[in-house]
Amino acid sequence: MTDVLVAVAHGTRAPEGPVVLSALLDSVRELLPGVDVRVAYVDVISPTLESVLAGLPAGVRPVVVPMFLASGYHVRVDVPSAVASDGGRAVVTPALGPDPAIVAAVEARLRSVVGSLPSAVVLAAAGSSDADALSEVDVAASLLSMSLDRPVLPAYVTTASPSVPEAVSILRADGHATVGVASYLLAPGLFQQRLDAVGADVVAPPIGVHPLVAELIASRYRAAAG
């Protein structure tokens, strides 16, 4: 049986984060009638992925969808470790990013708060010490740049360089009159709040509940369960 989807996210102490994730997964449930869609977290809050997997009945082969926009440490280490502790019965899909559907949702959020596009854009990601994860953010920035027909500089809220304020300053020094920030964050929280003080002309909201993201999660499930 592969009729269980476990969406695993990082976790946040910001109360609005789980609320947004819950609403997003409600959209996924509408796309996958009959599938038991559950949520789990790798850090900060519960339920943990280990506990969710352990609570599933014998004979169920769940599909785990990492709700991450790049394949950093949590995707490469924490998720496989939790699956292994459950006996390895779960199928793990790729992370959500840098799929073009995610980039399209990021662009939609940016366009929702501007009358005309800024002359340059910073793609603000959470940050990672993992080189492969940073490379995936670079891919997302390139896709967004092609779609917007604007320079897009990837930057990070924490851990990696350049920071988002540094990236804004770099683009201004390059002569761009207006600089916007596109949020490469899935849900609101502390990281999104930090973007308000980076010196940009406009800051887009996080991706949040978006039909493209819901469909991507559903398609990840279908491919793994098929």
Rank of each mutant, 00 (worst) to 15 (best):
R61F: 00
A9G: 03
Y156T: 12
T2H: 14
S22A: 07
G115E: 10
V168T: 13
G34H: 04
G180F: 02
S119N: 01
G72Q: 04
V164G: 14
A167K: 11
P162D: 09
A218Y: 04
D174H: 05
S183N: 12
I217V: 15
A187Y: 06
A223H: 08
A167C: 11
I102N: 07
L195F: 04
S116R: 12
P206G: 03
V181W: 02
G115D: 12
A187N: 08
R38L: 12
V37N: 09
R222A: 13
S129M: 00
R89F: 06
A95S: 14
L31P: 15
G34Q: 03
G88H: 13
A177D: 04
G17C: 10
P80D: 05
R109F: 07
D201M: 07
T178S: 15
E215M: 09
G208W: 00
G208V: 00
G97P: 11
L143G: 13
A224K: 05
V121D: 05
V122I: 09
I217Q: 07
A23I: 00
H74E: 02
A182H: 03
T12L: 09
V77C: 01
G11L: 05
L144K: 08
P80G: 11
A104Q: 08
G115I: 00
T159P: 10
G175T: 06
Y41N: 06
V137I: 14
L144E: 08
S219G: 10
D36F: 07
V91T: 15
Y221W: 11
L186C: 11
V65G: 08
E166W: 03
S51M: 01
D132P: 02
L190G: 13
S81T: 11
S161M: 02
A155M: 02
T159F: 07
L212T: 02
V8A: 09
S116Q: 08
L186E: 01
P62N: 04
L212D: 14
H210C: 11
L5P: 08
G115C: 06
V44P: 14
M146R: 15
A14C: 11
P15F: 13
V103L: 14
P33T: 12
V103H: 12
D3L: 06
A182I: 00
V137P: 07
P206K: 11
E107L: 12
P211V: 00
V121L: 03
E50H: 00
R111H: 08
Q193E: 12
